[in-house]
Write a protein that binds this DNA or RNA. Structure first.
Lengths: 151, 151
DNA sequence: CTGACTGCAAAGGGTTTGCAGTGCT
DNA sequence: AGCACTGCAAACCCTTTGCAGTCAG
């Protein structure tokens, strides 16, 4: 699911081209433009945001191509998604401080507790963002079931 | 947005009743049942999952009441949502290892880097879940703008 | 050339909302 | 008794899918 993220130094278009050739998928102007857009941004745009930006250079792109391409890039390991995957919102009775183990393949989220992780010191730079309330560690990986399946 | 999570020891129904009285919202069988359900679970059900479970005790509940109640409980600070809020999926060109500062009010997510956080030792218990790939720290709080607004 | 890819439009699934009736306070 | 709350059903939004034409390899 996330084989490698590749060298950050190589220009986006070249990186995509190499990854696409290797995976046997076609290199199209839409895909180049979409990857270049995501790679150039430090905020975390959703599909709509990418669409609006890419449309300025490629007026004919369609939103569904943006979606298809973003998931393709995810499968190629060139980008990742934030938070839980393409699922519905999940709720959590916040009765105790805990951390999450999230399976990147199926989205299964399991809690674990760790007094050591509860007390992580934050870098000072965080203060610039606002007022932190709590800190959670998110461990991303494959769950046992998905790992067995991919073997 | 998340004033307090309250004592975990108090029974769920009593906790909800106190919180509701204090906030001036009504205590209904549906709300009691929905909160009791979420509080009793360690997995992270979505609205549909809560709905199915609650329906066994309250056959007449409707899915939209479950939604309304879950967001009410979130506003009361009794439960939280997992991952980013009720938004669309966001994408991230994963070029470097970074951590996230997430505003619990507006969902704004900002990256920051911290070599110290990159190297957190994980507790051994995590190995039981599967094969970890990477670890990210998620700092939850208000962003500067939302904090200013709530003041 | 040929199959993968795109754009279009319509379907899909999760979530929200307007309304009239119900029940908590 | 009054007003918040519920259930119903329709609306909504984001995302996905089927199809015919197009283009990269």
């Amino acid at each position: 699911m996330t084989p490698e993220l590749g060298p950050a130094s190589e220009p986006p278009r070249a990186r995509f081209t190499r990854a696409a050739r290797r995976a046997g998928v076609k290199v199209t102007p839409q895909r180049l433009e979409i990857f270049a857009e995501v790679a150039s941004r430090t905020d975390h745009p959703d599909a709509e945001g990418v669409f609006r930006a890419v449309r300025e250079r490629l007026p004919a792109v369609s939103l569904d191509t943006v979606y298809r391409t973003l998931w393709l890039l995810t499968d190629l390991g060139l980008i990742t998604t934030l938070g839980t995957r393409r699922e519905s919102v999940r709720f959590d009775a916040g009765t105790s401080l805990h951390h999450h183990y999230v399976c990147t393949a199926c989205g299964l989220t399991q809690d674990f507790e760790s007094p050591a992780l509860d007390a992580i010191p934050l870098p000072e730079s965080v203060a610039a963002f606002g007022v932190p309330a709590r800190t959670q560690v998110e461990v991303l990986g494959l769950c046992a079931a998905c790992h067995a399946e991919s073997a």
